[in-house]
Amino acid sequence: MDNLKNNILNKIKDGEIKQTSSWYFLTRDYFFYTLTALSIVFGSIAVSSILFQSITEHMRPLRAVSSERELWVNFLQTAPYIWLIILSILVLVAWINYKHTKRAYKRHNILIVSLVLLLSCIGGGILFSSGRAATLEQHMRKNIPLYNSEIERRQSVRDKFIERKRGSRVPEQQGLRYVAPAHRCPTIRFACNADEMPFHNEFGCGCQTI
């Protein structure tokens, strides 16, 4: 046994084995904490986009023309699944990174995942309620071409639904005559009759009897 001790101490003396710097461990720990935090930040952005697209762009306009059941059916058809997938990936990434930190094993996996999800939801809720979600959405739509086409596809599903519903409900609304759904309004030109004036609202645009 003494041989073992002497052998190791000799190796230490000769510099054959060296201590790894504490900076290395510190940097590694902070690296994983940073990646975890970043995943939560991006998770918050994902949640804010989900809230903005689901509540502001879908639920609010749809609520006016559909029953509670129809609202949920439509929500399932037009839910931002890409963001839900991205959010799941980010939660997974946060969990993996956090697991690499020093004391992570003390916590149950389910607790870590729930906490990451909760923090993302809180962050996303703050972004949404402060109005930053709309700015972020605009920014993404302007700069990510594929993202924009996906939004348009979902909006057209929503508008078609509203148009279908409008057939029975809109004529009853103070003589409104819709010409186009909301997302097409900025790109079309139309003329109203002499006894009408143009209007536009969250469902679309058209002519209103004076």
């Binding site: 190791i8 201590q19 790894t20 020093k102």
Partner: peptide
């Protein structure tokens, strides 16, 4: 067993800075 033990002590020495 001595081989394993030596390995344990070498690793312990190398990573002593990571000890909390």
């Amino acid at each position: 067993r001595n081989d394993i033990l030596q390995d344990v002590f070498v690793k312990s020495y190398q990573n002593i800075a990571s000890f909390d």
